[in-house]
Design a protein around this nucleic acid. Structure first.
Lengths: 237, 237
DNA sequence: TTGTTATATTTGTAGGACAAAAGGGATTAA
DNA sequence: TTAATCCCTTTTGTCCTACAAATATAACAA
């Protein structure tokens, strides 16, 4: 029984059919795909529909087409699609809060990898980053400066996917931080006054002391304010 | 200087242009977009190109179109695109290993949330899951059974994004586990013999004891074998 | 065999056509 | 005046044709 409301378009169906075709025929990266005309006949649809479906898969990086040479299956970059939806302008506050929770979990969770991989050279680099930041002054710190330290931590962890993930989410974090600081007083200042501020220096010290549990506790307290503030920020900008 | 090799198609450009249009005009979910014809004129391209670009954004969930009512901006589900590239058939072993590393980090990192949120009722449910699994026998456990426990943990953590993320990655984990066990002896058996097996019972005990650090250590040891085995598995199936 | 040329194929792009759906306006009824 | 109904117009979804650019393939020449 078909509802009058169109829930899936032909393009949606053909897109799913092509994915199914790849799975059923066990195509792996490098394998050629039937060309447009063959899909048109296979699914009995117009060429536009097939092209729209393939265009989507090409955007995700699952397919690659070379003029005349046909279309091949590709190992897709994992975050092609994710990147495009991570626009703070489009996301609700609860969603942004969940992303921030994800970040906290990740950054606590990679501690294991960080402590396994970290070298003296890494520690030196982290010290340099911190001293550059101190030269600027903790309250004049640009958000990009602030993020350098964390990025380096992610690099030490040695997982490219997690690093990419973090970098893609940065615009969202910037939004959260910027909004916090424009509606309230700067986070750093507030925490400094209450004595709860966990600085990058504190984090680095825990790394130097090889105290993983302490590091995890500190990184949590370092990030938590951004997460908690989102509780009280329930309207879209 | 233009290379003769076409790196971006018109569709790619128009897709980027539409995203830029949304940002520049500060459109938020619910706002209407110009219709296809207007974009055709705005960018001086054929209707097909505009449709392909919008079809991509519709797939990601950034746009929604209703026949005649036009197109509106939508808050996109975050993982629409990610879901489609998570096909173990398409991913290389190093990539799968990075995903597994991500999972370990997440599951260690959400401990904080789990320990904050967990209730007696949750613990009862976890006990029921475990006893169902023990009734089956630890070596007869289906992979789905095995995953029930972890899914419940993610639910307790209370972050929908992380939960969705985990569920999407399950096919990849299944692949890793299945391959390990078909090439080597079952993971559980091997670890049991060496006395290193961390069972769900051990994990639950750490939760009952409210010992977060121990839990994190145990969950790491519970998952690590799958991650390490990927080191030695360097060929695509 | 090797190199060149011509042909055919395939993708990218443009544009026309039409059906279905729904908004808006006009007409009619109360 | 207000409310209900009908018709027209707009817009999306789909199909189709056409053509340029690129290149694989075949045919041909040296």
């Amino acid at each position: 029984m078909k509802s009058k409301l169109i829930v899936t378009t032909l393009t949606d169906q053909v897109e799913a059919n092509i994915i199914e075709y790849i799975k059923e025929n066990k195509l792996v990266p490098g394998d050629p795909l039937p060309n447009e005309k063959e899909f048109v006949e296979m699914f009995s649809v117009g060429r536009n529909v097939v092209r729209e479906a393939m265009s989507r898969l090409r955007m995700l990086g699952i397919l690659e087409s070379r003029t005349k040479r046909g279309i091949i299956v590709k190992e897709p970059p994992l975050l092609n699609g994710f990147k495009k939806v991570l626009d703070p302008q489009l996301l609700s506050i609860p969603t942004i809060k969940e992303l921030m929770g994800m970040r906290i979990a990740m950054e606590v969770g990679i501690a294991e990898f960080v402590f396994t991989n970290v070298t003296h050279k890494d520690i030196e680099e982290l010290e340099q980053i911190i001293s550059r930041q101190q030269a600027i002054g903790i309250n004049n710190l640009s958000i990009e400066d602030e993020m350098q330290f964390h990025k380096k931590i992610y690099e030490v962890a040695g997982n490219n996917f997690i690093l990419n993930f973090y970098e893609l989410m940065q615009p969202v974090f910037l939004f959260a931080k910027h909004n916090y600081e424009s509606y309230f007083e700067p986070i750093n200042k507030k925490l400094q006054e209450s004595g709860e501020l966990v600085t990058h220096t504190d984090l680095l010290q825990a790394i130097k002391d090889n105290d993983k549990n302490l590091y995890q506790e500190k990184i949590r307290r370092h990030l938590r304010p951004y997460w908690e503030f989102l509780y009280n920020y329930n309207k879209r900008k």
